[in-house]
Simulated scan of single mutants.
Amino acid sequence: MVMRWEAFLDRIEERGAYESRQEAERAARTVLALLGAHLVGEVRADLAARLPEDLALVLLNPLRAREPLSPERFVRATAAWIEGATERTATWDVSAVLSVVADAAGEELTHSILLQLPAGYDLLFGHPQPA
């Protein structure tokens, strides 16, 4: 089931404790663009099908990561794309967005997403995996 634009951004705004809808939307677009560069095939298509259309298009952007970013480098990349962000605020942004992505994806698809990413992303998605 596709999560509606308003509901998706409401959750990000709430989890990220953002002061404005624009901040939540900026975080969502940045994080999903970076995430989309790391996912391939059916997993990426299945996730896009569960996101609001505008954000699905961001995820499906054909940019490709040269190499998978570790969670730490993913956070640093997010900080570099958001004006005024620090690694600390970017960690907050990434976690707010990815936890809502996990809600939209559901348990099974979130597991498939995590299998495509380097170790450690489970915490950013709010789904710690047993060691």
Rank of each mutant, 00 (worst) to 15 (best):
R29F: 04
A17F: 12
S20G: 09
V2P: 15
A104N: 06
A28Q: 07
T110E: 07
D46G: 02
A90F: 04
V101I: 07
P62I: 01
A27T: 06
A65G: 02
A33P: 00
A56T: 07
Y18T: 09
A28H: 03
R88V: 13
A119P: 12
P118M: 07
R73F: 04
D54S: 13
A102T: 03
P52E: 04
A7S: 14
V100R: 06
S95C: 08
D103T: 13
L109A: 10
W92S: 11
L115K: 15
E23S: 14
P71L: 05
E23N: 13
L60S: 03
E6R: 15
L51I: 06
Q129D: 04
P118K: 12
V100G: 05
V31R: 01
L9K: 03
A77T: 12
F74G: 00
P68C: 04
A17C: 09
E83R: 15
T91K: 11
H111D: 14
R66A: 08
W92N: 09
T89I: 08
A119T: 10
D122W: 04
T30P: 13
A28F: 09
H111Y: 12
P52Y: 02
S95D: 00
A104M: 10
G120H: 11
A65C: 02
V40S: 14
V75L: 10
P71K: 01
G84R: 10
E13V: 06
V43Y: 01
M3F: 10
R44L: 05
A56N: 04
A77W: 02
E72R: 15
E23T: 06
L39V: 06
E19V: 13
S95R: 15
G120E: 07
E19K: 15
E108T: 15
P128Q: 10
Q116A: 06
V40R: 15
R29V: 06
A104S: 14
F125M: 05
S20Q: 11
A79Y: 03
E14C: 09
V40F: 10
P71Y: 04
A27K: 01
A27V: 08
V75T: 08
E19P: 12
E108P: 08
Q22M: 12
E67F: 10
W81S: 13
V40M: 08
P68G: 03
A27S: 14
L69V: 03
A102N: 06
M3S: 10
M3T: 15
A49C: 05
L123K: 14
Q116T: 07
A56S: 09
P128W: 05
S20K: 12
P128K: 07
S112N: 14
G41I: 02
R73S: 09
V94L: 04
I12N: 01
L35K: 01
A85K: 03
A56H: 04
L115D: 12
D103Y: 11
D103W: 11
V75S: 00
V43M: 01
I82R: 14
H111V: 11
L109H: 11
R88A: 13
E13C: 09
A48S: 04
L35R: 02
A24T: 11
A37I: 00
A17Y: 12
V100Y: 00
A119L: 13
G126Y: 07
E42W: 07
Q129V: 08
A96I: 03
